[in-house]
Design a protein around this nucleic acid. Structure first.
Lengths: 411, 411
DNA sequence: TCCGCATGTTCGGAATTCCGAACATGTCGA
DNA sequence: TCGACATGTTCGGAATTCCGAACATGCGGA
């Protein structure tokens, strides 16, 4: 995996070079926003439709230079990593840009492999820590782990219920490792459901042998597949079953799409992982685990998580649970500039509004973006109709969609 | 009372005439926004800082005509009543404007008294209906009225508790009128509290003689005044007492700032008026009362309140109770264009958003207004500083403040 | 009273935005 | 395949906005 799902903004006016780079980057799984002018690059980077992982920017542009674009962005925001490409290398310029915070500077023609390698390096795809082997340190978390250990000793099916981002799969793996069947396979029923899921399930049961079969989102199985499962459970299939429910079945309500007999078997051995919001001390503990891994990689390690940051971690409601926490810690440890990790490092949205006041042009642009999107939504994407209700010409709407990064290429 | 607290937008480029009109209007209590160009009149009327009761508009403007301005406003909004003034009368134009919906057309020079008279007429200061003599038709309302009649027969103090807008003073007056002391004075303790409220209270008790003394917001009386009151009540003062509590004491909780002995006397005879939200049938009934009065004044009376409108009246939560209902009915009966009063007439906010989509220019202007106001608030009204944080020139900020109706004259 | 600083306002030129026309391309239905 | 209609995009001119400079006025402190 290289650039999968990474968002790259490409600022390049040359059609051939641009198309070539887009193609290559998309081959690596990246999502590319391609703009051809400096004027269009600024909003594409500053107010993107999705977070920008990196920008690839030509120096010579028809309406200015990549250097000016970067300077402008540095004045008003913290730009993502910038990789500059240029047909005529200039040492002074390279030094200037790198000192200004650019990530890299490459002269054309360049080796594509080298280009991709540098891009990967500046994106830091492997900068995130691993989830620890425990659920947490709170009584509720310890209870989860105890039940998991106890159920791992038996053969009966187990149901794990938890919201998104709470490590259901991780817990299932740990149960497998702590059971007598750890030498046998741990098989996950493919979430990308085949049309004939009953057959897929039968195959997975066979593949698991005497190991463990993990079924995420059991309530989306067809009746036929559930019948196969009931047969396997009743017929004493050699493998152990661990299942989870889909998002709707994980909220404590009885899932609508599971056979009653199957459900009653599962509910007999059920593990409920409480959301992180209900376990603030676990949030701090988990943050500390990630911090130790990430901090060890810093050129200048931080001294620790400050008390205020710990309080902020406790107070946050963690809609994304552990995944959110990991993402925030990764970013925070990377961005921290003091000796201690501060609340603003973890929750940058907390301070951004109070310290930074958007320019009038920015406020205007944001309002236009919102309103244009609303018009397009109302007209179901029909550009001509949207222009009509907005009382602007179609040309103007098109121009603004380019300028504000709302064009089709962003999909 | 003439133009008290009415907001008038004056569009007049001549300094002498303008200053003269502003002065005269402010003398009548009006709040005047004075603009000198057509371009500035449009936003001042379309997106005002406070509702505009009427506009006074010169025909000849340096950048266009009042007629064009009015036409533009009629295209995109429902303008307030417009009174046109012009130095050269033109019959065709007068007819044209009146047919287009303008309220009046006056040639200069004109008699100021005539001008004010016409302005008053178009503002319709007396267009609201009176509250009826009953509280309502629901059992709860009838119970209130019965208790009021019963307590009116005695001399003991009465406490009326109700939220804002539920006619406490009206009920007190009705009790006075139905008592044996109706021939004696009904005295209200002045709500604009003097420093020595004990003395004011003593004077009011004396003025009430054998009539009724009404004390709104009794819990804000000083200890000294409350002592005077206890003395009067215990000493058998000849007047009857009806009191209400301030907003905090009207929510059912025990008021903190009333002597216990005084409070226990009052609570012995307490009338609680339930909010209109709890009496939906009373809301419809009250609306019908207002409707009958207001409808009789229409050139073309409506046939009635539609069933859908009655349902909407029942469903509304009426935070402003009877006052809100009266205001809505006044506006609705005036604005209704069909044969029946519809939900959208009473609750225009219900339909405005779904049927009308702001133009992009309007959305942009609204965003700019908001942001400029935020900048001025942040800099405590310092224009130069606001321009700096907005990253625009001082000139541009001034221009925008003019164009968006944010200049000092609006205070 | 004077001075420094801020705001209110106008003016003319530069910069930016908006627009209609035109052309290329794509989609859908007959 | 053709025609109608829609979108994507460019171009050049018109309209609008923004700006610095300049001048007038007001306010507060020495």
């Amino acid at each position: 995996m290289t650039l999968r799902d990474r968002h790259i903004v490409l600022i390049e006016d040359d059609e051939i070079m641009g198309a070539s780079l887009v193609q290559r980057l998309e081959l690596e799984g990246a999502v590319v926003t391609w703009v051809k002018q400096m004027a269009r690059g600024i909003p594409a980077v500053r107010t993107p439709r999705r977070p920008v992982d990196a920008a690839v920017c030509d120096i010579r542009l028809p309406d200015g230079s990549g250097e000016e674009l970067f300077a402008e962005l540095c004045r008003t925001t913290t730009p993502p990593p910038f990789l500059f490409i240029t047909g005529q290398g200039d040492i002074d310029q390279a030094v200037r840009l790198l000192h200004a915070g650019a990530a890299d500077y490459l002269t054309k023609p360049f080796d594509t492999a080298d280009f991709l390698d540098r891009l990967q390096k500046i994106i830091r795809t492997d900068g995130e820590g691993e989830f620890p082997a425990e659920t947490g340190i709170t009584p509720a978390a310890r209870h989860v782990d105890e039940m998991a250990r106890e159920f791992a000793k038996g053969d009966e099916p187990v149901l794990i219920r938890a919201a998104r981002g709470l490590g259901k799969a991780g817990l299932a793996r740990r149960m497998h490792r702590e059971s007598d069947r750890s030498a046998a396979p741990f098989v996950i029923l493919d979430e990308g459901r085949e049309r004939d899921d009953a057959a897929a399930l039968a195959r997975a049961i066979e593949a698991a042998g005497e190991g463990t079969l993990y079924i995420p989102g059991l309530d989306s199985l067809s009746e036929a597949a559930q019948a196969v499962l009931v047969t396997a459970v009743r017929g004493g299939a050699p493998c152990a079953l661990i299942a989870t429910l889909g998002p709707e079945g994980d909220d404590g309500a009885a899932p609508a799409d599971v056979r009653d007999d199957l459900l009653s078997v599962l509910l007999a051995r059920e593990i409920v992982i409480p959301p992180l919001q209900d376990r603030p001390d676990d949030a701090v503990w988990l943050a500390t685990q990630f911090f130790q891994t990430l901090n060890a990689r810093r050129p200048t390690p931080l001294r620790g998580i400050s008390a205020h940051a710990a309080a902020a971690l406790r107070a946050h409601d963690w809609p994304g649970n552990g995944r959110e926490l990991r993402a925030r810690m990764t970013r925070a440890v990377d961005a921290a500039t003091g000796e201690w990790l501060m609340p603003g490092d973890i929750f940058p949205e907390m301070i951004a509004e109070s310290e930074r006041f958007a320019t009038l042009a920015e406020a205007r642009e944001a309002a236009e973006r919102r309103h244009i999107l609303a018009a397009l939504s109302r007209t179901e994407g029909h550009v001509g109709q949207a222009a009509r209700i907005l009382r602007i010409s179609r040309t103007t709407l098109w121009e603004k969609m380019q300028r504000l990064g709302l064009s089709e290429d962003d999909d």
